[in-house]
Design a protein around this nucleic acid. Structure first.
Lengths: 260, 260
DNA sequence: AAGTGGTCTAGACCACTCT
DNA sequence: GAGTGGTCTAGACCACTTG
């Protein structure tokens, strides 16, 4: 049997169809092209967050490749946390909405216990993006932007002061009401209401001294050392869609990380 | 063809040989058992850091399984950073010694540029482990322990003050001379001289104020906010073998992290 | 040319979930 | 029992490295 038999479907993939780019990578295996197609469909919203995608057999038939090739593409997407496999049930679009207990991107851990976090919305304004934010979000300075500020509490005490900046065009109907009425992580709301999936983020962490404003919100003396966590979140196609700056009081919590 | 044909070798794996444990996992696939055997051999030092392991064909024959099963075991070990695959050459034992440019576990990044770090050894003493260190390293309080302190410089300015604690029995011949003469990351020395491979680590990060001692070493005013990074490193079998506490001056550097 | 890892296929059977 | 993902095998061929 030839390794790459003729395709049988309009969706079918041509071997090396992505390899003809001059100066590009010299070789792109079939399963990576399948992976690309699946990402395109996820991006287009063909399957919603939390829904099942078609079975491997069906995808294999649709793309005109063997099940093993689809499997390898899906394996990578599952490793990237874009999909979640559940044996006997199917493969599902990953979502931040139903993550049990913990917020997927929040690395804050209490020294003891595991109380859940309470949220308090401070404000939500529409503004024009300053240059430094626009640059990180790949917008133009002055473009419309949403700014949200909030507090996270643990056992009654404020622990995190967050500032969140979002591109105005992607989050058109975002209001204080929607944010405050919503249960669970913001990222769940973003998926359901705006079709924006956060799939990856980069954080820059520093130690800073609390200024007057943050000190009063976090109920600590001015000058208290705080963890500054600047997070840039990306959606499909490595497009940055959220900038966040959190100030963490690490008196009774720490930022947990795992190195491999 | 049966999915699990008879084994042909003394090394051969019995299907589900690990599944008979009462109360244990109900099923352990072949490739995971192979993975376990490979880890055992790595741990025993059968192949040294940086060396090639036998080819997949040879391992398949040795274990009495198909090449595809060995491949899946090796895939996971490569994903865990225990092995490194190099197409056309072979599969190699991962090492910290030859990592180009960057220290694998060091997430510190300069705001601009990418100068290399200079090292300055402060001291290296053998002591008895205090209770809190002993507990983390799974030793008994009072057991012999090596304590190292050092500074990392970037462009002439001190940036990191590190305290490192190691179990005395594993690092018998460790001296100031060895440490100061050695080039490259400590972890390279630990592999070559003591056969200790760091394969994974957990970090707890906080913001703290510089005390008198750390302030003078890092040449900052007392009370300056610093990043406190407590790292517990593990070798094969999730055995903790190093505790480290770093104080990072984040005036011109940040701790980088990636979330998935 | 030989040897290594990398891709792709095809088919059989196992484990898990739901009806 | 039917459908899904998970494991295992066997063989062919491709891409890369080295002699």
């Amino acid at each position: 049997m030839p390794a790459q038999p003729p395709a049988i479907d309009e969706d079918a993939v041509r071997p090396d169809s992505a390899a003809s780019t001059v100066g590009g990578p010299s070789f792109s295996p079939l399963y990576r092209q399948i992976k690309g197609l699946l990402i395109t469909r996820l991006q287009a919203g063909e399957w919603k967050a939390g829904e099942a995608i078609p079975s491997e057999q069906e995808l294999a038939a649709r793309f005109g490749v063997s099940q093993g090739t689809v499997r390898k593409a899906v394996d990578e997407l599952a490793a990237d946390n874009l999909l979640v496999r559940r044996q006997g049930k199917g493969t599902f679009v990953a979502t931040h909405a139903e993550e049990k207990i913990q917020y997927r991107f929040l690395r804050l851990t209490p020294d003891k216990g595991a109380e859940s976090l309470g949220r308090q919305l401070l404000d939500c304004k529409r503004q024009r993006a300053p240059a430094w934010i626009a640059k990180l979000l790949q917008m133009r300075a002055g473009d419309p932007m949403v700014e949200v500020r909030r507090l996270l509490h643990s056992g009654g005490a404020p622990v995190v002061l967050d500032e969140i900046w979002l591109p105005g065009d992607l989050f058109k109907g975002l209001t204080v009401e929607k944010l405050s009425q919503h249960r669970g992580p913001f990222y769940g709301l973003f998926e359901a209401e705006f079709g924006v999936h956060m799939i990856r983020a980069e954080e820059k962490i520093r130690a800073v001294a609390a200024d007057a404003d943050s000190a009063s919100h976090l109920q600590v003396p001015e000058g208290t050392p705080l963890l500054s966590v600047e997070r840039l979140s990306f959606t499909y196609g490595d497009k940055p869609v959220e900038l966040r700056r959190g100030l963490y009081n690490t008196a009774n919590h720490f930022y947990r990380n795992e190195l491999n």
